[in-house]
Write a protein that binds this DNA or RNA. Structure first.
Lengths: 253, 253
DNA sequence: CGAAAACTTGATTAGCATCAAACCAGGTGG
DNA sequence: CCACCTGGTTTGATGCTAATCAAGTTTTCG
C-alpha cells in the first residue's frame, strides 16, 4: 500500500521511469516530501498522487504568525513539515490557553474537513513550514481511496489522546510536576541535533496554567539542578536520565 | 436523508405498512429508540436499518459500574441512551482524573472502531442505559452508507471540542470559577424535570483538579448563596440567572 | 546606543491542600 | 425499633504553594 522504492541519487526521477502516467508537478513535490510517509498522504501511492488537481501551497511562518484563526471559516487542513505550532483558545475569563502542540508530520485544522470553523487559533512557535491541503482535495482523494478516511479518523483519535494527556499530566499536579512533564513532552518535538525547542515563559504559562514568574523560577531551578541546559535562549538540551528521575521523585513526594 | 414521517399513535407500525422489507426485530427497536435521531444511526433511514445483522445489546449499569476499561481491546462503541458516563484515566502520579462526561445520545468508545484499545475507563455516574454497537456492524453500515463516516468524524471532532473546553474552562482559573463552570456544564445533562445530576465531591475533585474538601466548601457556599438547591443528595436545581451572574463576577474579579 | 521586550529574583499574600474531627444518611443485624 | 456501622460530607485550624507586586537584569532590535 505504500510508496515504491526510490533512489534519490538517480538522475532521472523514478516517477518518470517507472510509471506511464502524465507528469504532475504537485505529485512530484509530494513524492519528494520528507514527511510524506508519516503525513496524511502516506497512504497514497505514486499513482494516486497523480490525481491531485489542486494546488498544495507551501507555507512558511515566523514565530508568532498565525496559520489560521478560530473565527476563520476553514477551507483547508495543514500538514506541519517543520517547526512547532501551538493551538490556543481564549477562555471566557479572557485568558489565553494553549491546548495542544503540533510538530513535524502533524495534521492540524482537521475540523475544516467537516465544513466547520476552526476550533482554535494555530500560531507558529518556531519557524514553521506547512502544506495547505484544501478541503476539496482531501474530499476528492478520499472518494478514490477510502483508506484516507481511516487515516483521518486515526488522526482525530490521536488529537483526542493528546488532549486527554494534557488534561491528566499537564493540567494537574504541582507546578513542578507539570513543568517536568512539559519538558518530557517537548522531547517529542526534538531537532536532529538533540536540542529541543524551549518555549517562552509566557507560552509555558499558557500551557501549564501558571504565571510566567512561576515558570521562570522552575526553569531556573532545573538549570541549577542540571536537568536542562540552555545553549541559547530558545533551545535546551535535556539530561534525560535526570529528567526521568526528577519526575519519579515528584510523583512519589 | 433522514427518517420518514412517523405517527406513534398509529396502530400498525409504519415499517410494516410503508416498506416491503422483511421484518427485522433489531431495526424496529432502533426505529423506536428515543435518541435515534440524535445518535449514530440518525443518518440511516428505515430501509437501511433493515440491514443490521448484528445484535445490539441493551446495557444497564448502576452508578460505579464500568462500561469498559482502558486496557480492554475494544470491539464496540456505545451510544448512551440515558444517564451520565464519566471517562477517566489515571495519571502517572497515580491520581485518577475525569477527562470528559458523556450523556444522552453521546457516542463513547469510538477508538474501538479503529481497532485500538480504549483510551480511558468509562464508568457510570448515574443509572445508565446504553446500546452496544459492535465494530463489525458499524463497518458494514459505513460501507453501505458513507454518510455514517461523516457523522463519525463529526463525533470525533465533538469530543475534541469538549476536551478543549475542559482544558480552557474546567482546568484553569480559581477553584470557584471551575466549580461554577462545572455546574453550567452539568445543565447540559439535565433531566426532564429540570433537575441536574450532582456528582459526588470525589467526582467533582477528579474533574476539576481539587480536593474533596475544597469541592465541598464551594458547593456549601453556593447553596448558602442560593445559586443551587439540593432537593436530594445526588440532584440539584440551579438558579440559572444567579449562576450566570456568579460566573460573570468571577471572571471580572 | 537606547528603548522595548523578555526574563529573573525577591518579598508578601491569598488560595487551596492537608490534617483532623464531627456530622449525617442509609443500611444491617440484634 | 434502635444501636451501630459505614461511606460520603461538612467544617475548622494550620501550613505550604504559587499568585501577586515590585524591582532589577539580560536580550533584542531599530
Amino acid at each position: 500500500m505504500n510508496s515504491p522504492r526510490r533512489d534519490p541519487l538517480q538522475a532521472l526521477h523514478p516517477l518518470d521511469l517507472q510509471q506511464r502516467v502524465p507528469f504532475n508537478p504537485q505529485a512530484r513535490v509530494c513524492m519528494d516530501c520528507g514527511v510524506r510517509r508519516f503525513a496524511l498522504f502516506g497512504v497514497l501511492d505514486a499513482e494516486e498522487l497523480q490525481h491531485i488537481h489542486y494546488h498544495i501551497a507551501d507555507i512558511t511562518l515566523e514565530p508568532g504568525q498565525p496559520l489560521y484563526m478560530a473565527s476563520d471559516h476553514g477551507t483547508a487542513a495543514y500538514t506541519v513539515r517543520e517547526g512547532v505550532v501551538r493551538l490556543e483558545r481564549s477562555s471566557e475569563r479572557g485568558e489565553r490557553r494553549i491546548v495542544r502542540l503540533a510538530g513535524r508530520s502533524s495534521l492540524v485544522g482537521l475540523e475544516a474537513m467537516l465544513g466547520q470553523t476552526y476550533a482554535a487559533d494555530a500560531v507558529a512557535c518556531t519557524t514553521v513550514r506547512a502544506c495547505r491541503l484544501p478541503r476539496m482535495l482531501v474530499d476528492e482523494l478520499a472518494r478514490e481511496q477510502p483508506g484516507l478516511l481511516r487515516d483521518l479518523m486515526k488522526r482525530w483519535q490521536g488529537a483526542l489522546d493528546e488532549a486527554d494527556e494534557w488534561l491528566t499530566e499537564l493540567s494537574a499536579g504541582s507546578a513542578r510536576w507539570r513543568m517536568l512533564r512539559l519538558l518530557l513532552k517537548l522531547t517529542e518535538y526534538d531537532e536532529p541535533d538533540g536540542r529541543i525547542w524551549l518555549p517562552t515563559r509566557q507560552e509555558m504559562g499558557a500551557m501549564l496554567g501558571m504565571t510566567i514568574e512561576t515558570a521562570s523560577r522552575l526553569v531556573s531551578a532545573l538549570k541549577r539542578e542540571g536537568v536542562i541546559d540552555t545553549p541559547d535562549v530558545r533551545h535546551a538540551r535535556i539530561d534525560m536520565p535526570a529528567l526521568l528521575e526528577a519526575i519519579r521523585l515528584e510523583a512519589a513526594g
